[in-house]
């Protein structure tokens, strides 16, 4: 037996409770920061959303309590409806990044000369900031100078002014967002493919499986962890979309490209007025939508945790 368990040495309170105190001390700074800047503000936003407040002075002095009136106003707000509908479009179309990423990963999962460099170059749109992606694509779409219309012109089509057309603009922005997101999903799947069990693949081959059947019944089930992460990051990415919209169209033309995250910012902080309460109400709605997904993610992770408990 060693010193720590030797009963002849008197042990202090600290030492006896070290298995409780140590984790508490180690957690304290991180939890404190996180609580102050993330957890508490979530509840504060709920609270602020029941006020009419311009953000100046203290909420308790300058704000006017209005109960659920902000939410009532949302129900009849046409701009809110458009934003919500655009969020649905973002969610649905952004998920295309997952099959697209899988497709590129399958395409690149070979060993030829220089394939590593190809893989990193395919990935690297993800590393560029969304601001620059937004700029790059808004120039790409330019009606006169843009490369897209040059290409369309070769096929005798166009010119189209994607970002200037209220019916097309949102799709143009989503396409720009899909570019880095597909790259992200691709890298997840490349890693997943690396870990696919070669014996199972060989066994399936002997059984005559190939092509689509092999992909669907043998490969994709083994890629499940990668698919889960791709799903999580894509949903979150879709609901967080702000940078691209702000850079590419600033919500226009005629407010047709607003999403909830952007509309909230506009209401609370931009030249359209400083309505913190109303903005918070929009944020609460966005949060509640997200909460459905967060609940699902946490539940899946909790199941895995239970399985891996030691």
């Amino acid at each position: 037996m060693t010193a720590a368990t030797d009963p002849t040495i008197p042990r202090s309170w600290m030492q006896r409770n070290r298995m409780t105190i140590t984790p508490l001390l180690f957690l304290a700074p991180g939890v404190l920061f996180f609580a102050v800047y993330v957890i508490i503000p979530i509840f504060q936003s709920f609270y602020i959303s029941t006020f009419e407040w311009n953000g100046l002075g203290e909420l308790s002095e300058q704000g006017e309590y209005v109960g659920f009136r902000n939410y009532q106003e949302l129900m009849t707000d046409r701009a809110f409806e458009i934003s919500l509908w655009n969020n649905v479009k973002w969610l649905a179309l952004y998920l295309l990044a997952i099959p697209a990423g899988l497709f590129i990963a399958l395409f690149l999962n070979q060993t030829i000369m220089g394939i590593r460099i190809y893989k990193s170059l395919f990935f690297f749109p993800f590393v560029i900031s969304q601001v620059v992606v937004g700029l790059v694509f808004s120039w790409f779409y330019l009606p006169r100078e843009g490369l897209l219309n040059l290409v369309l012109g070769v096929f005798g089509a166009g010119p189209v002014n994607i970002l200037g057309d209220p019916t097309l603009a949102t799709y143009g922005i989503i396409a720009a967002g899909l570019w880095p997101q597909t790259a992200y999903c691709m890298i997840l799947y490349l890693t997943g493919l690396n870990a696919v069990d070669p014996e199972q693949v060989e066994a399936a081959r002997l059984d005559g499986a190939k092509g689509w059947k092999m992909l669907w019944y043998v490969i994709i089930p083994q890629l499940k962890p990668a698919t889960f992460i791709a799903f999580v990051v894509t949903i979150i990415g879709a609901l967080r979309s702000f940078d691209l919209i702000s850079i590419m169209t600033n919500g226009g033309p005629f407010g047709s490209t607003r999403v909830l995250s952007f509309y909230m910012f506009e209401k609370a902080l931009s030249e359209y007025g400083f309505r913190m309460g109303y903005g918070s109400a929009i944020a609460v709605v966005l949060f509640l939508i997200m909460l459905v997904f967060i609940g699902y993610f946490l539940w899946s992770m909790y199941r895995d945790e239970k399985g891996a408990r030691r």
């Binding site: 953000g55 909420l59 909830l260 902080l269 903005g279 993610f297 992770m301």
Partner: peptide, 26 residues
């Protein structure tokens, strides 16, 4: 333990906008 861990994960997923007004105010 798991509760605190899941609090970190959940917080990491929230939309920024729900934090915007309070964090700016702070």
């Amino acid at each position: 333990n798991l509760l605190i861990f899941f609090m970190f994960i959940a917080g990491n997923f929230v939309p920024f906008q729900i934090l915007m007004v309070p964090v700016r105010d702070l």
